[in-house]
Computed example of a mutant assay.
Amino acid sequence: MEDRYLRATPLLDIGHPSLKALLRERSWMELPERERIGAIYDFVRDEMPFGYNASDDLPASAVLADGYGQCNTKTTLLMALLRAGGIGCRFHGATLDKSLQHGVMIGLLYRLAPNSIIHSWAEVCVDGRWVGLEGVILDDAYLDGIRTSICGDGGPFLGYGVGTDDLANPPIQWAGTDTRIQATGVNEDFGVFDDPDTFYRAHGVNARGIKGWLYRHVMRKAMNKRVRRIRAAGECGAASSAAAAHRAL
């Protein structure tokens, strides 16, 4: 693996004490490479719940400190943890149609959003081919909340941060192949970059100027509130199902 896919950058701050401590605590370096990728992927997908950070271009240590993330910030954290764990990876940049965010953004928030939203995912090389890890974005509890409170059926679904051909069974589990959860919302592909720093220098971030201030201080708070409400519906539904199963015993 080339050094450029393993090196640290200001955003991929792989030497930060919090990232190094996490690798030690989880004993990820003791795992074979494929299992190590899966363990890091599962941590970022499910133990870092979906939510909107203050900016796309946060360093990985700041995302970890927030304890949640969206596509771009989770990609940065995933890449940093992979590289810290000796796994080479690269960055894939794109944009999403804003319709994918409808439901999380509503009313004026949705109208103020750009028509195309900066999007990204990490890629790792497995058995000689690059594998996309876009499915890391949404945690299981959030997806369960969408199925419980918004759309109980499978099949195609676009909105609430989801873009998939099958909401009932999206390809989000690590199995050595591509994972996807927002892919059907992609409307422009910028290709691959060595790291997020290079991409953001070329294409910028989603929120700038007055809209950036509104996003940081108003919009994302409302969006995160809606995300938490959806996730709570999923957790409540899971608890009800568990209680029903217990009563049936």
Rank of each mutant, 00 (worst) to 15 (best):
L11C: 07
L12A: 06
I14M: 07
G15T: 10
H16D: 15
K20E: 15
A21S: 14
L22H: 05
R24D: 13
E25Q: 13
E25R: 13
R26K: 15
E30P: 07
L31G: 04
E33Y: 02
E33P: 11
F43I: 04
M48E: 09
Y52T: 03
S55W: 12
D56F: 02
L58I: 10
A60F: 12
V63Y: 09
D66E: 13
T73P: 05
G85E: 04
G85K: 02
F91P: 00
G93I: 03
S99G: 13
S99L: 12
S99R: 14
L108F: 09
L109A: 12
L112T: 01
L112Y: 09
N115C: 07
S116N: 11
R129K: 14
G132S: 15
L133F: 01
E134G: 01
I146A: 04
R147V: 03
T148P: 01
T148A: 15
G154Q: 02
G154L: 03
G155H: 07
F157L: 01
G163Y: 00
D165V: 01
P170Q: 10
P171N: 08
I172P: 01
T179P: 03
G191N: 07
G191L: 04
F193K: 01
F193T: 00
D194N: 11
D195N: 13
D197Y: 08
F199V: 07
F199W: 11
G204H: 10
N206R: 07
G209H: 09
K225E: 12
R226S: 03
R228M: 08
I230A: 00
R231H: 05
G237W: 01
S241Q: 14
S241C: 05
A245D: 12
R247A: 13
R247Q: 11
L249A: 10
